[in-house]
Every structure is written in structure tokens, then in C-alpha cells.
Simulated scan of single mutants.
Amino acid sequence: MPRIALITGGNRGLGRATALALIEAGIEVIYTHRGDPGEKIDAIPLELTVGALETYDDFATELRRVLRDRFGREDFDFLVNNAGVGVHASIADTTVEAFDELLNVHFRGVFFLTQKLLPLIADGGRIVNLSTGLARFTGDGYAAYASMKGAIEVFTRYLAKEAAARGITANTVAPGPAATEFAGGMLRDNEQVREGLARVIALGRVGEPEEIAGVITAMLGTDTRWITGQRIEASGGMHL
């Protein structure tokens, strides 16, 4: 029976890197996108706006259809809540609209999408929620974003406790700076920014998407089945 992972926001950045890593590991991948599935890979794209909670019933119906028709299954094994948006603003400059967008995608969306999909996750499955290193250390302009991720870390601990009766684990992976499209690709393309960050990272450089994907993939593996309710930071030792 094939192992199946669902990744939200798998059309780019860390989500795409994770999809490719899981495919390489022999896992079937379904990923969500907001209208642009990205470069074609050996995975199944499904459209979903994570912040639009009113669409979750239809999404779950479509997911069930794909699981049944493509894989002959009624459930899947791994959920990676990765989809996100970035808002860079000081507390003084954060608008209600920007705050609500972050809330809907990073917290309300993760909470209620997980609630909707839990009945479809196989017993003994795995859930990984994406947090951020900014929930431990601070960075200018990320108070609202990091606060949502802090909420995700608390949610994950409660989720781990409630899901344990079914043998399902739940953990957070908290990336540090990584060279993706996030924040307009600044960490990927701006050498001045990269050099500045490297000075406060123990390993002396910004991370690569594949390195974060490797951690996520490891947390879905059988060797980590005894880990649950934990925060795993992959930041190269930033601000130690």
C-alpha cells in the first residue's frame, strides 16, 4: 500500500522542496496551491486557499475522491501544514487587514484544516506543522507573523496529546533563514542580507530549502515515531 503525504503550499519554496524530498523517499505526494500549481512534478496538485475556511468541505470531498480513485484508499499518512504568507511590519505599522490575513492562513487555517482532515489521516500517521525560528528569537518587523507561529507551537502540543490515542504524532519544524521565495526572495537573492544573517548563525550561512525539507522528511519517517509534541528548530544555530 502506498504511503501518501498531503502538503499545503507545495507549489513553491519549502513546500516544493519537501514534496521533492518525499517523492525521492518513495512517498506519494498530494499538494495544495492557490491557482498556480508551479513546475510539474510527479505529484497531484489540488487547489486550496488555506485561509478560506468555507472551502474546506469541498476540498475534503475532492481529496477523498483522489485517494479513492488514484490510490484505492480512504485515508492518507502524512499531513504537512506548510502554506503561509509573509507580512513584514512593525507592531505600530501592522494593519488589521494584514493581521487577519496572517491569522487566517497561519493559525485559523492550520487549526481548522487539521480538524477537517484528522478523520482522513491513518492511525499511526504523522503531522508536521511549520513554525519559525522567529518564535524563539526576534527579528525586526515580524511580531505578528511570529506570534501566529507561536500559537501553532502550542496548538501542536495539544494536537499531539489528543491524537496520541490513534498513534498519530504531531510536531513542529521551525526553520531559520532559508533561501526561498519568502519575503520576495530576499534571503535567496540579496547577498548583503545573507551575509548579515550569516554573522549570527553558528554554521555561518543561510540554509537551503532542501535542508529544511530533509528535517521535515525525517520527522515523517519510522525512525522518529517516538517523537511527538516537540519543536524541532532547523536554523543552523541562529542566535545561540
Rank of each mutant, 00 (worst) to 15 (best):
D36T: 12
I44L: 14
G150I: 02
K149T: 04
F111Y: 10
Q115R: 09
N190Q: 09
R16L: 11
N11T: 10
G84S: 00
A179K: 08
D75W: 09
A143M: 11
L113Q: 00
L63N: 01
T169M: 09
A170D: 07
K149E: 03
T169R: 11
L187Y: 11
V215Y: 05
T172E: 09
T156F: 03
I91A: 15
A143V: 12
T138D: 14
T228V: 10
V50I: 06
A170I: 06
D77G: 04
P209S: 08
T228K: 08
E24H: 09
R225A: 15
E97V: 11
L130W: 07
T32E: 02
T55Y: 05
A17T: 04
L48Q: 01
Q230F: 12
R65L: 15
A146P: 08
T49W: 14
A178S: 14
F182H: 07
F78I: 15
I127W: 01
H239V: 15
T180M: 02
D77Q: 06
V105P: 00
Q230L: 12
P2R: 08
I152A: 04
R12F: 07
P175F: 02
R12L: 09
Y56Q: 03
A52T: 12
D223K: 10
L67V: 03
A21H: 03
R65Y: 13
Y158M: 15
A218V: 11
M186P: 10
K149D: 01
N129S: 02
A234L: 06
N129H: 02
G86V: 15
P209E: 07
G125C: 07
E62K: 13
G9L: 05
N11I: 09
G204N: 05
L159P: 06
A178Q: 12
H88T: 14
R108F: 04
V173M: 02
L63I: 01
P175D: 01
L120Q: 05
A151S: 09
E28Q: 12
T114A: 00
E181P: 09
I30D: 05
A144H: 06
R16W: 07
L6I: 06
R108Y: 03
G125T: 06
R188Y: 05
I201H: 02
A25S: 11
H106W: 00
P45M: 02
A92D: 14
G214R: 02
E210I: 11
P119C: 00
I121M: 01
V87Q: 08
A98Q: 15
N129I: 01
D93R: 06
T8P: 01
A163V: 07
V215G: 04
K40D: 13
I44M: 13
T224D: 07
Q230H: 14
G10P: 02
T217A: 13
A92R: 13
I232G: 09
M148G: 05
E28Y: 09
A163C: 10
Y142Q: 12
P119S: 00
D42L: 13
R199A: 13
